[in-house]
Simulated scan of single mutants.
Amino acid sequence: MTAAPLLPWTLATLALLPALGLALVAGCRGRIGQRFAAVQLAGSLCVILLLCLSFATDQPSTIDLALTLTVLTLPGTLLFVVFLERWL
């Protein structure tokens, strides 16, 4: 495959990185409700980022990783909330 069709996916991946960084910083600071929303946003951004990376690298087998993360994002966030409520 040529490099031209892969360029938009690479640019989309790079465009998502600052938003992911801001979500991770917001997940470490702020009130508990803001942390919860930031962790949910970071999970959603990671799924989209993994999908963009799978198309940018032309590896369709990595889409399974994004689908697994989609299924595990909500339970992981709920465990994070239980941790925050109990120990912080």
Results as ranks from 00 to 15, higher is better:
29 R>P: 00
63 I>K: 05
27 G>Y: 02
15 A>R: 06
9 W>L: 03
68 T>C: 05
70 T>A: 14
28 C>S: 11
22 L>H: 07
37 A>W: 12
36 F>G: 05
86 R>I: 07
27 G>E: 10
21 G>Q: 01
37 A>D: 03
59 Q>C: 06
68 T>M: 10
51 L>N: 04
23 A>E: 07
72 L>W: 09
71 V>M: 05
20 L>R: 08
69 L>Q: 10
73 T>C: 08
35 R>F: 04
59 Q>Y: 05
27 G>A: 15
40 Q>G: 10
31 R>E: 15
87 W>A: 07
43 G>C: 02
44 S>Y: 03
58 D>L: 04
73 T>S: 12
79 L>D: 02
13 T>L: 13
82 V>W: 12
37 A>V: 09
35 R>M: 06
54 S>C: 11
27 G>F: 04
82 V>D: 05
87 W>R: 15
56 A>V: 02
19 A>Y: 12
68 T>W: 11
86 R>W: 07
73 T>F: 01
79 L>A: 15
46 C>D: 02
26 A>H: 07
30 G>V: 06
61 S>N: 07
78 L>I: 14
63 I>L: 14
78 L>P: 00
44 S>C: 11
52 C>H: 06
17 L>G: 00
32 I>M: 11
80 F>C: 09
51 L>I: 15
77 T>S: 11
55 F>N: 08
39 V>D: 04
28 C>I: 00
29 R>T: 15
38 A>I: 10
78 L>T: 10
52 C>S: 14
25 V>H: 11
33 G>R: 13
46 C>I: 04
78 L>K: 10
17 L>W: 09
48 I>E: 05
57 T>W: 11
82 V>P: 00
52 C>N: 11
38 A>F: 08
63 I>Y: 10
14 L>C: 11
25 V>N: 03
8 P>C: 08
82 V>A: 14
9 W>K: 01
13 T>I: 00
75 P>Y: 06
19 A>W: 14
37 A>M: 05
30 G>D: 08
18 P>H: 07
33 G>A: 14
76 G>T: 14
73 T>H: 06
61 S>K: 13
47 V>D: 01
79 L>F: 14
8 P>D: 09
82 V>G: 03
56 A>K: 04
37 A>Y: 01
58 D>M: 02
8 P>N: 06
54 S>F: 02
45 L>R: 09
12 A>D: 01
44 S>Q: 08
13 T>E: 05
